[in-house]
């Protein structure tokens, strides 16, 4: 009997924890930009459709053949034009996806939005 009680208490804690995790602490970055901008949403869709996550990481999530993209936009060594170049032509390892100009703009808008949320990365970099 106590085993069943322990299980149920853990399970209930887990359920509550899940709800809290998914609602608290993430509001501040719940960017209204996302709602307002069709481009960001399209960019995210393209990002998933072309499975960019298999080679790139956002917040460390993804494959490792390509560079981490979370702060690529604000990175002084990379930035918008640099990113666009790879989206247009691919690279030694990255395939050329033959994106249209609009698609590239949308992807850049999404990655720019991701960059604005990356507060933890940036405070660490300043330190």
């Amino acid at each position: 009997m106590p085993r069943i009680i322990i299980f149920l208490s853990l399970f209930i804690t887990y359920a509550i924890y899940s709800v809290v995790v998914y609602s608290k602490g993430t509001m501040s970055i719940s960017s209204s930009a996302f709602h307002e901008s069709e481009k960001i949403r399209n960019g995210k869709e393209l990002f998933q459709q072309y499975n960019c996550i298999s080679c790139h990481q956002l917040y460390g999530l993804g494959g490792y053949l390509g560079p981490e993209l979370t702060t690529a936009y604000s990175d002084p060594q990379r930035g918008e034009l640099y990113m666009k170049a790879f989206l247009q032509a691919g690279g030694p390892r990255m395939p050329n996806f033959h994106f249209t100009k609009e698609e590239i703009d949308d992807i850049i808008s999404y990655l720019k939005y991701v960059d604005t949320t990356a507060v933890t990365y940036k405070t660490r970099q300043i330190q």
């Binding site: 998914y22 719940s30 996302f34 949320t117």
Partner: peptide, 21 residues
Amino acid sequence: YLWLIGHFNNNVVRDVTVQWK
């Protein structure tokens, strides 16, 4: 699959959290 809901899909931090969690 919670990301199919806007609450998660529209906020990259939640979106990443769903995947990790």
